[in-house]
Design a protein around this nucleic acid. Structure first.
Lengths: 208, 208
DNA sequence: AAAAACTGAATGGGCATTCATTCAGCGTCG
DNA sequence: CGACGCTGAATGAATGCCCATTCAGTTTTT
């Protein structure tokens, strides 16, 4: 059989387990989810999970790696497609961040709620994929600063982190309240405006 | 005995237990902390904890209520003492938020890491004290808008939440890395500047 | 001496992980 | 061709550990 097909069946099952874990973790959180619940969500036997993952912690970490990789790839692609200034690209970033959350609520909930815990309490896990995510944001800020569009008295790492925090907190509220996605687009617009233009009233507001 | 003294001895022990729980939760997280560890941190027997709290969940919630109440009271007092415009008061808010975190790292870690989990997974708990905290921030924004200092095309609830998110994420990084508090003051300054003035370069930057 | 506060060993249930067993697919041999 | 192992994925009942919680007994307070 061809090399590329060797793992077909396996990967399908592995993905089913990850999918089941995502739904279960989103619903009840890592610590309140039983391995047997994940198994039943995935339609496999309890023991099967241990053929694909070392243990429950490993399953959590694998889920992060896998989903973050997917998110980063998509973000990269869509950002590269944006024409226009850094400002347009930052707005696109914010909109995409929110759009991804609306597309898969469980994923959004999983990441907003479990990311912090795991960063601290799953031993030996440094969360490199999340760092990559922040790096994308930081490099956008850097670029704006280098082009002379953004003020240079602010640290781009700090700004990137703060912006991520703002988005994350707003999304947390959105996912936990399970509210309608109606105004998410509007919220994205407001947050980018706030960060880029600031709160203060000006004589010459920046135009789109 | 006077009514206010009735609980004197009790309250001392209760506070010792809360303190022990705070240290333990900050170090290992709620789910990885044994009740017996809390007891030993507090210097009481395991069973004593159940004289003051219904169960482990109740201990967590009580800890939130207690500490948030304290934080809010202090915030309120210090904000009321600030002379000057809304801008000064928002800057003061940000600085105080960071200062509190530096003063008690365990408390900061506990709140940044456990708040989200508990909001979702401790059943029946709506976290009213945290809502109060956000309300303070929101009312500052409202005030700025009413005075015509801030733009009114942004929703104050959203702005408040975003600002909290930015602070929280930056503090998370600070507490988890256990880094020196050296530049916290500077970071607070940068974040308030960013939110109030925005990222964009302007001819007439706002002055302090 | 009665009540109240406290203790910590014992209990019991919950749950991650294991592993003996099943079974489907597949090559081999008579 | 069909009977016969062989292999390794999959299963899920059984295991044993881990704690939250209890409560009978002890100490302290009044």
């Amino acid at each position: 059989m061809a090399d590329s097909e060797k793992q077909r069946g396996s990967n399908e099952k592995r993905e089913r387990i990850l999918e089941g874990a995502l739904r279960a973790f989103a619903k009840k959180g890592f610590y309140n989810t039983r391995v047997s619940e994940i198994a039943s969500e995935a339609g496999v036997a309890d023991g099967t999970i241990y053929l694909y993952f070392k243990n429950k912690d490993d399953l959590l970490i694998s889920l992060f790696e896998d989903r973050m990789e997917w998110i980063i790839a998509r973000l990269q692609t869509e950002l590269d497609a944006v024409q226009g200034s850094v400002i347009e690209r930052i707005k696109a970033f914010v909109h995409l961040h929110f759009r991804l959350a609306v597309e898969d609520r469980d994923l959004a909930e999983f990441i907003t709620v479990e990311l912090r815990q795991s960063a601290k309490f799953v031993k030996e896990y440094k969360n490199p994929k999340f760092a990559d995510y922040l790096k994308i944001l930081q490099s956008l800020i850097d670029q704006g600063q280098n082009e002379g569009i953004f003020r240079t008295d602010l640290d781009s790492r700090l700004v990137g982190r703060a912006l991520f925090g703002a988005l994350d907190e707003v999304l947390l509220q959105f996912t936990l309240s399970r509210s309608a996605p109606t105004d998410v687009k509007d919220e994205a617009e407001q947050i980018s405006t706030m960060i880029i233009d600031g709160l203060i009233v000006r004589e010459h507001p920046t135009m789109d």
